[in-house]
Design a protein around this nucleic acid. Structure first.
Lengths: 296, 296
DNA sequence: CGAAATTACGGTGCACGTAATTATC
DNA sequence: GATAATTACGTGCACCGTAATTTCG
């Protein structure tokens, strides 16, 4: 029997232009897409694609079927919008966040969301920025609070904070030269960093490259907390959200290294796809924006 | 994610009036239906039924969702109808038949069907009449060629043959009284029969009951061929399609017992549901009708 | 020869059906 | 107390992802 997954796959192939692209768009693999189409063709009793062409061309019947598929998928979206008042939404809502969010505004955010959407079933997952983006695109999450910029025009995006970043060094790292350091001087320190998939690390890479340095990481760790600990221990220097670590600076555990040119700010966005949950997501996004200043 | 099976279940419950009735209509069980609804509600984020009422009442949101579901299911049906020329249909088509059909017109029928629908993938299954009806209702088959009457108004039905039936006795059963036998006299013979789910047996039961006799079967067997063998062997008498066994009568292996009142005729129908394959089924039905006289 | 779809295959999660429980009239 | 839906649970299947194969340009 025809299933929505098959219809979705067919539609995605036509939209994306190839089986492989459709697989990526739907967050699955090429063989899975291929199989869904074979099954759909068997169910319907006619071929949808002419496999003799590259890329596969729609058959006459495939063309005829396409608008029906689009309409069916639109209906699925409209089903979720049937809920006129988002406050009544009692379903699951998955928010992907960074560690920074988890350490700062998450408790306040959850409190605010529950106040406006009392029946919602929240799920949060901490990941690095690029993984959060991918989860959104693959529909594994409904919203992300992450450094931008958003990967494409596919997502609703709203800027919620602009973090001031600063290179930090532990007290035991030895004397620092006075005044702002150029990139070349900075790059001579051991660089501690989150992994390549992190938003902070993207800033580091870009800044170093723009200033003629090759990023050479000494140590990568996916935990910001662990990273700060290693920095304090004098293992190297790390780029971190300035305000979040000001207490450590005041206590003398961390020292701030100014740079020239200065580090850019890191913009946090709330991101969500068009998936029929926009009404709910819009409310959550408002609350994210409200707590945004707490990020730094 | 919302699936067509969930939507189908929801729609069927509203149509049928209860979870249990929907399960029967869809050929599944009550728990399966219940689970699909729970999942659908979880996906959508709102309740569809008020479980506090008996039978469960649609919530406000359930009411709002219903037309979208109906539209989606209608789209699924239209998808199959996308095929404008049924002769191009290259899918599976499952025909349920009785043993009588298999023994008489099946080869001719298959030849004719393949001529008109050259790409079709035919599947045939031999079963007793009641099982054929159930397979149709549960969507396990696409067409049945079986004794009527059809169980409800749910199926397309077309009469394709009217079989003359006759009680038959083997040569070794001993002398028969001359002239037509009343039901009471007939019932004193050992009665051989197909099982209760057979169309022939339904005729026997009804006729005996109408004429004041309790059906008392000596031996039941689901094979008409085996039944005729046992009759020839003198184990008892059996009601069988008259024309099909005329050669055995001519050879003296079988004798015909006329009754009073005479046995009714057994009407064969071609049956198929509304499932989006009507165009194909209509063509197949024409061919069934064309070979119908071959049934007797 | 390279890109892309299909086929093959092993594993896993999900959906089903049976049976027991709960709830409602 | 009876009917109907839910919950619990074990099983089988279907779908997925990895990898190998085939098929085009």
């Amino acid at each position: 029997m025809v299933s929505l997954r098959q219809v979705e796959a067919f539609h995605a192939i036509v939209e994306a232009g190839s089986f492989a692209a459709a697989a990526q768009a739907l967050g699955t693999t090429q063989p899975a897409i291929s199989k869904r189409i074979v099954e759909l063709e068997a169910d319907l009793g006619f071929l949808l694609f002419d496999r003799g062409a590259r890329p596969p061309q729609l058959t006459r019947h495939g063309h005829a079927l396409l608008p029906l598929c689009a309409e069916m998928l639109a209906l699925r979206t409209r089903m979720r919008a049937t809920l006129d008042d988002p406050a009544e939404y009692a379903g699951q809502f998955r928010i992907g966040i960074t560690e920074l969010v988890a350490l700062t505004v998450l408790p306040a955010l959850i409190t605010r969301i529950r106040a406006r959407l009392p029946r919602i079933r929240l799920r949060t997952e901490v990941k690095l920025a690029e993984d959060l983006h991918q989860d959104l695109l693959d529909r594994r999450s409904d919203m992300a609070i992450a450094p931008g910029p958003p990967p494409g025009g596919l997502l609703h995006a709203r800027k919620v904070a602009s973090l001031e970043l600063a290179w930090m060094a532990g007290a035991s790292l030895g004397p620092l030269p006075p005044g702002p350091l150029p990139a070349a001087a900075l790059a001579r320190f051991p660089l501690l960093a989150q992994t390549q998939r992190s938003g902070l690390q993207a800033v580091v890479n870009e800044w170093l490259l723009e200033n003629g340095q090759r990023p050479q990481l000494i140590l990568a760790c996916n935990s910001l907390t662990a990273l700060s600990g290693m920095t304090i221990a004098g293992l190297g220097i790390a780029l971190m959200p300035r305000s979040q670590f000001l207490p450590k600076v005041a206590s003398g555990e961390l020292r701030i290294i100014e740079t020239t040119p200065p580090m850019p700010r890191l913009d946090y966005h709330v991101l969500y796809p068009a998936s029929g949950l926009e009404a709910v997501a819009g409310i959550v996004a408002e609350e994210v924006a409200a707590v945004g200043p707490g990020l730094g």
